[in-house]
């Protein structure tokens, strides 16, 4: 990790990794979509709507995963002054927010045929909505200061304070017996879901992960390049000394 605190070294690595992650994302997405939409059976209770699960659940996992990555890298950035970590946090936020939106919307489209309601104020749904606001708040906060470095530092405090929401989302379905179904994949004793459904689920989860890595690399390279542009513009303004 410390080796890649040097942005230039990170950029070299990132440039190499980007096309590979893109390719991986495409392959996994294609495989995931094939199994999710074509080569898997409908659920005997939920029918074809179970296919929504193959978007909803991996997106939900990613919404939590991206937040944790964002909070950890923001923390590393502010505590150890690791410039690449800062960039990783900033780049993760919009992606995490996107996955959260997808989680909420896909959940609504699943809930309507299944429960009869687009939305209920169930613990997990509410906490996921709070997660979206945390993402949006983080993005607003880091852009609210004239000094970008100050923005990132403030954002780190917010991101770390909001981490408490992540276990709430994860365990809310166990603590409160309300509407959202309890855990059936990531729990003690292993998954209780059928193999033919586990395959598309895991493939889509991996596809989303690969996508995240790809977009993260692209955005981080853009952000680091932007930093260089800012520095060069400053030098241009002040004259070459």
């Amino acid at each position: 990790m410390l080796r890649y605190a040097n942005p230039n070294r990170f950029m070299r690595l990132a440039r190499v990794l980007t096309p590979w992650s893109a390719g991986l994302a495409v392959l996994l997405t294609a495989a995931g979509l094939w199994f999710a939409l074509v080569d898997s059976p409908p659920d005997y209770q939920q029918g074809e709507t179970v296919r929504i699960m193959y978007v909803h659940v991996p997106a939900a996992w990613m919404s939590l995963f991206c937040y944790v990555v964002m909070a950890v890298s923001a923390g590393v950035g502010v505590i150890w002054k690791h410039p690449v970590a800062d960039v990783a946090a900033k780049a993760s936020a919009p992606v995490g927010a996107a996955f959260t939106v997808i989680t909420l919307i896909s959940g609504a489209f699943w809930g309507k045929p299944m429960w009869g309601a687009w939305w209920v104020w169930d613990a997990r749904l509410t906490a996921e909505l709070v997660l979206l606001f945390l993402y949006l708040g983080y993005i607003a906060l880091i852009h609210a200061f004239d000094d970008p470095a100050r923005g990132l530092k403030a954002g780190a405090v917010l991101a770390l304070v909001g981490v408490i929401n992540v276990p709430i989302i994860k365990f809310s379905v166990d603590w409160w017996n309300t509407l959202h179904q309890p855990a059936s994949v990531v729990k003690m004793g292993g998954p209780s879901i059928d193999g033919s459904m586990l395959v598309p689920l895991l493939l889509m989860a991996l596809a989303f992960k690969a996508y995240y890595i790809y977009v993260l690399l692209v955005k981080m390279r853009a952000e680091i390049t932007a930093g260089k542009v800012r520095a060069l513009r400053l030098r241009q303004v002040h004259g070459t000394a």
């Binding site: 708040g137 607003a140 609210a144």
Partner: peptide, 12 residues
Amino acid sequence: GARRGGVLLSLL
């Protein structure tokens, strides 16, 4: 020191 601190505060 943030811009639009009041509104941002509500959002946070």
